[in-house]
Deep mutational scan, measured.
Amino acid sequence: DEFHFHWNGRDIRVRGDSEELRRLIEAIKRGELSEEEIERAIEILER
């Protein structure tokens, strides 16, 4: 699976399928994380 979302003017695409990944992306979409937490998560996910 590939998750695709927009954040902070960026087009983010992440491959993978796990419950943890889904929860993280939902939290990002709901605005539950700080900008710094989101940046760090995206860096890890894009590897």
Rank of each mutant, 00 (worst) to 15 (best):
D1L: 11
D1C: 06
D1K: 10
E2A: 07
E2C: 08
E2T: 09
E2R: 03
E2G: 09
E2H: 12
E2D: 13
E2N: 06
E2S: 08
E2P: 04
E2W: 12
F3W: 11
F3K: 03
F3N: 04
H4E: 11
H4G: 04
H4L: 13
H4M: 14
H4R: 09
H4K: 08
H4I: 15
H4A: 07
F5V: 03
F5N: 00
F5Y: 05
F5H: 01
F5R: 00
H6V: 12
H6T: 12
H6C: 04
W7K: 01
W7F: 07
W7L: 05
W7S: 01
W7I: 05
N8T: 01
N8S: 02
N8I: 02
N8F: 03
N8H: 05
N8M: 07
N8A: 07
N8R: 10
G9V: 00
G9C: 00
G9S: 02
G9I: 00
G9L: 00
G9W: 00
G9A: 01
G9E: 03
G9R: 00
G9F: 01
G9P: 00
R10Q: 06
R10I: 05
R10P: 00
R10F: 03
R10M: 04
D11R: 05
D11H: 08
D11L: 13
D11Y: 10
D11E: 11
I12R: 01
I12L: 03
I12K: 00
I12M: 02
R13I: 15
R13P: 11
R13H: 15
R13E: 15
R13A: 14
R13C: 11
V14D: 02
V14Q: 01
V14W: 05
V14M: 05
V14K: 01
R15P: 15
R15F: 14
R15L: 12
R15I: 13
R15V: 15
R15A: 13
R15G: 10
R15Q: 15
R15W: 15
G16N: 06
G16K: 05
G16W: 05
G16M: 03
G16Y: 06
D17R: 04
D17F: 06
D17P: 13
D17G: 05
D17N: 13
D17K: 07
D17E: 10
D17L: 04
D17S: 08
S18R: 09
S18E: 07
S18Y: 06
S18V: 09
S18M: 06
S18L: 09
S18N: 12
E19N: 09
E19H: 10
E19Y: 09
E19C: 03
E19P: 14
E19M: 10
E20Y: 08
E20S: 09
E20C: 04
E20M: 09
E20F: 11
E20W: 06
L21E: 10
L21D: 14
L21F: 14
L21T: 14
L21P: 03
L21Q: 12
L21R: 06
L21A: 15
R22P: 02
R22K: 13
R22T: 11
R22G: 08
R22V: 14
R22I: 14
R22M: 14
R23D: 14
R23H: 11
R23E: 14
R23Q: 14
L24V: 06
I25T: 05
I25R: 02
I25L: 09
I25N: 03
I25W: 07
I25K: 03
I25D: 08
I25C: 02
I25A: 06
E26Y: 12
E26M: 11
E26N: 13
E26H: 11
A27H: 08
A27C: 04
A27I: 07
A27Y: 09
A27P: 00
A27N: 08
I28N: 01
I28P: 00
I28E: 01
I28L: 07
I28K: 01
I28T: 02
K29I: 13
K29E: 11
R30S: 15
R30V: 08
R30G: 15
R30F: 13
R30P: 00
R30A: 15
R30K: 14
R30E: 12
G31P: 02
G31C: 05
G31Y: 06
G31T: 02
G31A: 07
G31K: 06
G31E: 07
G31V: 02
E32C: 06
E32R: 03
E32W: 10
E32T: 14
L33K: 03
L33V: 05
L33M: 14
L33T: 03
L33H: 03
L33D: 01
L33E: 01
L33Q: 02
L33S: 03
L33W: 11
S34P: 05
S34W: 02
S34Y: 03
S34G: 07
S34F: 04
S34H: 05
S34V: 05
S34Q: 06
S34T: 13
E35R: 09
E35C: 03
E35S: 13
E35L: 09
E36D: 12
E36L: 12
E36K: 11
E36H: 09
E36T: 10
E36I: 11
E37D: 11
E37Y: 03
E37T: 03
E37V: 03
I38F: 05
I38M: 14
I38H: 02
I38V: 11
I38N: 02
I38S: 03
I38R: 02
E39P: 03
E39H: 08
E39R: 07
E39C: 02
E39M: 08
E39G: 08
E39Y: 06
E39N: 08
E39V: 08
E39L: 09
R40M: 13
R40D: 12
R40Y: 12
R40H: 13
R40F: 09
R40V: 11
R40S: 10
A41F: 07
A41I: 14
A41E: 05
A41H: 05
A41G: 03
A41N: 04
A41Y: 07
I42K: 01
I42P: 00
I42E: 01
I42A: 02
I42Y: 04
I42H: 02
I42V: 09
E43V: 06
E43D: 12
E43T: 05
E43N: 06
E43K: 07
I44Y: 12
I44G: 05
I44V: 10
I44D: 13
I44N: 08
I44C: 06
I44F: 12
L45G: 01
L45K: 00
L45T: 01
L45R: 00
L45F: 14
L45C: 00
L45N: 01
L45M: 07
L45Q: 01
L45I: 12
E46A: 05
E46G: 03
E46H: 05
E46P: 01
E46T: 09
E46L: 14
R47T: 15
R47D: 15
R47F: 15
R47I: 15
R47L: 15
